[in-house]
């Protein structure tokens, strides 16, 4: 009895220690966050840094409120988020489909191998001008940029994962006379789900790059457009505001994908 009481006590102490440590970490994270903005504000007011270029948190916040009220911020934000979400979903889906095609036909995969290497090595954003000419300077081109940037790497990663599926799982299905399609649906695809989801996480980041660069080039709407516009009229309040919003929403999207990942692959 006495022994149990001591163990309980020790466990309590251990838990307390854990909470305390966690609190310290949270404190420091918060502290860095706040002091960064305070320092920035002070540095700007005391003109230690150039106000024109580095702006200040209060000025950016004022602009944020102003743009929020006149509605222009939300519409631009909505467009960029829409393009990005579509871009990374399309990129992941097309990449997975291409990978399936390569898995289906080893011959095709052997033939296409060098082309995949070239396409993967090439900086996809350099294709931007071509997209704009072919697809027109609008939403379609930007979504295409957000897609193309992730599709090849997704193909390569997912195809590798398809090939690494334990052959014995396929053997089990073969003994029941499974067709190639059945093997794909029952073993190959589900066992590669974790890989596909994790490419989704990478693709969120990539699609932001594609979409922002696309908006730079098309220069009509979206957060990328706000950045390039702010740069051209030398309004760095606008540039920094757009950057801050991109940071927030890219993080949110990443977290959402991570949540989906946890839900989907509970049992593996």
């Amino acid at each position: 009895m006495k022994r149990k009481a001591t163990i309980d006590l020790l466990h309590q102490q251990y838990l307390q220690k854990l909470t305390k440590e966690k609190r310290w970490i949270r404190f420091w994270q918060f502290f860095i966050f706040i002091s960064f903005f305070i320092l920035w504000e002070i540095a700007s007011r005391q003109t230690w840094i150039d106000q024109l270029i580095f702006s200040s948190p209060t000025k950016i916040f004022d602009l944020f409120v102003e743009k929020l009220l006149d509605g222009s911020l939300l519409s631009n934000l909505f467009i960029t988020v829409f393009e990005t979400v579509l871009g990374f979903i399309l990129g992941t889906m097309l990449g997975t489909m291409l990978a399936a095609l390569l898995w289906w036909s080893p011959k095709l995969s052997n033939i296409l191998d060098p082309y995949l290497v070239i396409l993967n090595a090439m900086p996809k954003v350099a294709l931007g001008p071509i997209f704009i000419v072919v697809l027109g300077p609008g939403l379609t081109s930007i979504i295409a940029m957000g897609t193309i940037i992730s599709v090849i790497i997704t193909t390569i990663v997912v195809y590798t994962s398809f090939k690494e599926v334990d052959q014995n799982y396929l053997k089990v299905l073969q003994t029941f006379g499974a067709t190639k399609k059945q093997m794909f649906m029952e073993a190959i695809l589900p066992s590669s789900f974790p890989t596909i989801i994790s490419t989704l996480k990478v693709n969120v980041g990539l699609s932001w790059v594609g979409v922002i660069v696309g908006e730079f080039l098309v220069s009509a709407k979206g957060l990328g457009y706000l950045i390039i516009y702010g740069f051209q009229v030398f309004n760095f309040n606008l540039v920094l505001l757009s950057l801050a919003i991109i940071a927030v929403f890219a993080t949110i999207m990443y977290q959402i994908v991570e949540l989906i990942e946890k839900k989907l692959i509970k049992n593996q």
Binding site: N168, Y169, L173, T175, F176, G177, Q182, F193, N267
Partner: peptide, 25 residues
Amino acid sequence: YMLQQDYLFPWKTIEENILIGLKLL
């Protein structure tokens, strides 16, 4: 044919696992 290890599909329940043969056929 029964393999050296069970090779039950980890993403399927036991019921789905034992019915896979009939499903495929």
